[in-house]
Every structure is written in structure tokens, then in C-alpha cells.
Nucleic acid binder design. Structure first.
Lengths: 97, 97
DNA sequence: ACGATAGGCAAGTGTTGACTTGCCTATCAT
DNA sequence: ATGATAGGCAAGTCAACACTTGCCTATCGT
């Protein structure tokens, strides 16, 4: 649902997580925790990040694959592409010539 | 700020308002109230809609022009175009050939 | 001038959501 | 087998937000 996508994107931490996944796909929960702490100074608990990832996953913005005790997280940009053009009029300015 | 744009877009009523403004630009507060009631069955108070418009305006998604006792509301898609491509990778599938 | 229309300001309420804490399960290494 | 690592579940707390209510200002028509 589009509703879930908007709800997922409203939180700054979740947007940061997407930023990290754009840089490198297939990170685990602990890797993402570490990156948020290092690069953004966010001292979040593991559960907080886990819940954020659950929200992103139920919005289908993040796909996961389990492998042993690891759970890898991959970005899925498809929902973004769908909502991006909702309010763009036909006569909107083009961005690539 | 991008933060304001995401906050503005998370509310379904505000997205409906944007939908209405895509259809017809330059509507007044009362016109928007009426349209939300007619087309979507939303029985919102005038103040509720007014506050939504204020949020959209501070996110620069809606521009306003005063004329006498009327205040016309116009859609501004520029902030949308900027956030749309934030997480789209270079190798993302193109939509126009 | 006076009523009616269009809109604004501010305080109060109820719900949603982000984060924490505590405990539990599963997989790997030695 | 046992400790360590990776992750999950559930209840509780606190703040942000949508909406209402009540009152106020400004512009238009007659």
C-alpha cells in the first residue's frame, strides 16, 4: 500500500537507513546499527533499528534474505518510483535532456 | 527542508488535497473543503483543512496568493521532484525510453 | 453602516508512533 | 555441550500530531 510507504518515509532514521542501503546492499541489523552510530551519531538501541527495519520491510522498501543466523537487508526502490510521479503534471519540467 | 515535505505527505488528507490541486489549481479553502466532502466523503471542519494547508504551505508544496478576501492555493511540485530521486540508483530502470 | 462571507488564532483532547527494557529463540565456534 | 553471536517478541513510557471548539479579524455587497 502507498500509505505504508509514506508512513515509512516520514521518520528521519528510516530515511538514513535507506541512505545506508543505497551505499551498500545486504547489510545485517548490527551493521546498520553500527553505521548509524558511526556516520550519523545516532545512539539507537538494536530493537529501535529492528523495528524501523520491520516498518521498511512491510512497506516493501526493504527486502530481506535469511542465511544461517544472519539476515541481510536489501533496498527495493520500486515503491518509490511509483509514488514519485503521483503529483507530477504532464507539463512538468524534465530533468534529463 | 526535506523533512517538512515528508511530514506533509504522511497525512492521507493532505495527499488528497494535493490530488485536488493537481486537478484544478487556485482553489480557496472553502472550495477544497467542499471537494473533500463531496468526492471523498471527508467531513472535516474548516479549521482542520486550514491547518493541513498551512502544513503544505510551510513545506512549499502549496503556494498561496491573496486577492481581496480570497486566498487561492496553487500546487508546487518542485519539492516532490527533488525528493523523488533520492534513493534511485544510477542503474535504476528508466521509465521513459 | 451592517450583515454575511472568507479566513485566522489559540487552547484542549485523544490517538498514534518511536524508543526502551526485559526476556526468549536460533545459529555458530571451540 | 556451552558460551557467544544474531535476532525476535511484548509490554510500558513519552512526545508529536490531527482534529475540535470558541472567538477574533478582514473584505464584500447592498
Amino acid at each position: 500500500m502507498a500509505e505504508d510507504v509514506f508512513k515509512a518515509l516520514v521518520d528521519p532514521t528510516r530515511r538514513r537507513i535507506l541512505d545506508e542501503l543505497v551505499e551498500r546492499d545486504g547489510q545485517t541489523l548490527f551493521e546498520i546499527c553500527g553505521r548509524l552510530a558511526m556516520k550519523h551519531g545516532l545512539g539507537l538501541s538494536r530493537q529501535a533499528v529492528s523495528q524501523h527495519l520491520a516498518v521498511l520491510e512491510s512497506a516493501d522498501l526493504v527486502r530481506t534474505r535469511r542465511q544461517g543466523r544472519y539476515k541481510y537487508h536489501d533496498l527495493n526502490t520500486e515503491p518509490l518510483e511509483r509514488i514519485a510521479t503521483r503529483w507530477l503534471r504532464p507539463d512538468a519540467p524534465e530533468k534529463s535532456p
